[in-house]
Design a protein around this nucleic acid. Sequence first.
DNA 1: CGCAGACTTGACCGCGCTCAATGCGAGTGG
DNA 2: CCACTCGCATTGAGCGCGGTCAAGTCTGCG
Lengths: 281, 281
Amino acid sequence: MIEITELRLSRNVDAPDRQSSGVIWINADGSSNMAQAIRLQQASPLKAACNQCSLSNLCLPLAIEENDLDRLEDIVQQGKIYNRGEHIFDQSTPVRSCFAVKSGSIKTSIITEGGEEQVTGFFMPGELVGLDSMSSETYACTARALERTSVCEFPVDKLEELTGKLPELQHHMYRMMSQEIQNSHQLAMLLSKNTAEERIAALLLSLSSRFRRRRMSATNFSLPMARNDIANFLGLAVETVSRVFTRFQNQGIIRARGREVELLDVDALQVVTRDFARQGQ
Amino acid sequence: MIEITELRLSRNVDAPDRQSSGVIWINADGSSNMAQAIRLQQASPLKAACNQCSLSNLCLPLAIEENDLDRLEDIVQQGKIYNRGEHIFDQSTPVRSCFAVKSGSIKTSIITEGGEEQVTGFFMPGELVGLDSMSSETYACTARALERTSVCEFPVDKLEELTGKLPELQHHMYRMMSQEIQNSHQLAMLLSKNTAEERIAALLLSLSSRFRRRRMSATNFSLPMARNDIANFLGLAVETVSRVFTRFQNQGIIRARGREVELLDVDALQVVTRDFARQGQ
DNA sequence: CGCAGACTTGACCGCGCTCAATGCGAGTGG
DNA sequence: CCACTCGCATTGAGCGCGGTCAAGTCTGCG
C-alpha cells in the first residue's frame, strides 16, 4: 500500500532546532548565545558537531556508527545561513556539494530555456538537497531559501570518498536517492491523474506528516511557501489553489489565514486523496 | 540549456544486439548459434561476458577498468529472457536485483490502492531498471516486458559491495541515479505545464535520440509500447494520443501506421516542445 | 474466417486556465 | 498617525483543452 503523504524526500527530521537556527537569542540573564558560538568556531574552525545536532538521528549521521561520526564531521561545513530568496546553488553551475537543511526551508526549481520555472521540491529541516545533481557536472536545478535558512554543506567528492569507506553510509545514500526517485514518481502521478483538490490535499498531508516528524504540530503549522510556489509545484494556477483552499475551508476541512493553516479534519483530506482510487475497485 | 529529449534514463545504449538478443538464428551453412551458446554456458555456467557485450560501452562496464571487469562479471546473471507481458519484478516484493536491458524493452509502473496504473518509465537496451528501488526493502514499481526481452541481473547486495570497492563504479551509480531523478523531474514538468501535443512531441524526440544512440534510425522506428501506455505515461487519454498522432500526420510532421513511426520534420517537433517556452522571453 | 483487442474518429461537456478586478497586510515615508 | 505602495491572496466571468462516452475501423491471431 502506497502512502501519498510523502511528496518530498522521506529522509526525516526531528526536534526543535533552536540552537541550530542561526538566530541569536538573548537569555534571561542578559547573555546571548553569540559569544559561545564564536568561541566554538574559534576552537574548531570548520569542525562540525553532528553528534550534538538535534537532527542527527534522521540526517546523514543516522547511518553512521558512533566512532565513525568524526569522519563525517571532518568533511561537513556547518551552519551557513541564507536569507529569504537567496540562492544556495544555481542550475548549470558546477556541482560542489549537497546540502542538509538545519532550519528554515528550501525550494528547488528548474528554469527552462524560455524562463519558465518549475518547482521540483520543498525541503524541510533534516532533508537533503541536491541529490538530483549527485556526481553530475552541473546542478540540475536551483535551490533558494524560502525563509531564513541554515544548512550543512557536504562536498560531493569527499562524500563519495567517504561512502566508499563506510558501507552503511553508502547504503543510506542509495536509499535516499531511490526515495527521491520514488517521490518524484509520486509527484508525476499526482500531476497526471489527480484533480486540483486531490493534489492540494496530498500536499497538505505531506507537509503535515513532515511537521509531525519534527515533533511539531501536525495539524497546526504555517506554510513556508507562497501560494504561487504551491501552484507551480502542483501544476495549477494560483487562482485554483486559492479557490480550493476556500472550498476546503467552507467544508470545514481546514482553516487557513494566509500561510497559517489548521487541519480540522485529516480523515476528510485522506478521503479526498483516495477518492480517485475508489472507483478502481 | 536543458534538452527535453531525455524523458527516460540517459544511460545509453549502443549497437545492434543480435548476438545478445537471446534469439537462435540459423546461418547460411545450416549451423546455428545454439551449439556455441551451450558450449559457452557449460564452460562457465553463470559467468557473463560483459567484455564481449555490444552494450558494454554504455552499460555498467563503461565505468570499470578493463582488469576489474571480471569482478562485475562475477556478480551478474546474464541473458534471462522474458516474453511479452511477463513481469521482471513486482511492486512490494522484496528487492533482489536491478536489471540492465540487453534487448527488447521494459515498462515500469506503479499500481495504486485502487488498482489504477501509472506508467513511470520505458527502458530500452543498455538502460538500467530498478534504480528507484535500490537499497529499499521492496520494489517501488512493477517491471513488465513490452516485447520479448533479455536482461542482465545485478543482485543489489553484491552490487553495493562492489561499488564500495570500485570508486568509479560507485560514481557511475550515483550519476545514473541522479539522472533518474532529473528525468523524473523533467517528466513532472512535462505533465504539469505542457499541452498534449507538447508531451507527445517530447516523447517522440526522446525515443528518437535513444534509437540513435543504438545506431539505429532516429527517424524511422517502431514504438515498443501501445497507445495506452503512451497515454498513461503522459497523463493523457488514449483518444487524445490518437488525435494528436493524426494531427501531426496531417501537418506532415510525422507518418504513423500503427506502431511504425517516421519522423518527417524533426525541427517542427522541437518547435512544438519549445512552443510554450517562447512566450517566456 | 471470426473474434478480441488495439486504434481511430466524432459529439459533448466540465475542470481548471485566463483575464481582470478587488481585498488585504506589511513596510515606508511624510 | 494616516496615506500610499507593493506584493500577495482572493473572487468572479468566460472559455478552451482534453476527458468521457459511444461508434466505428483496423489488425493480428487462433
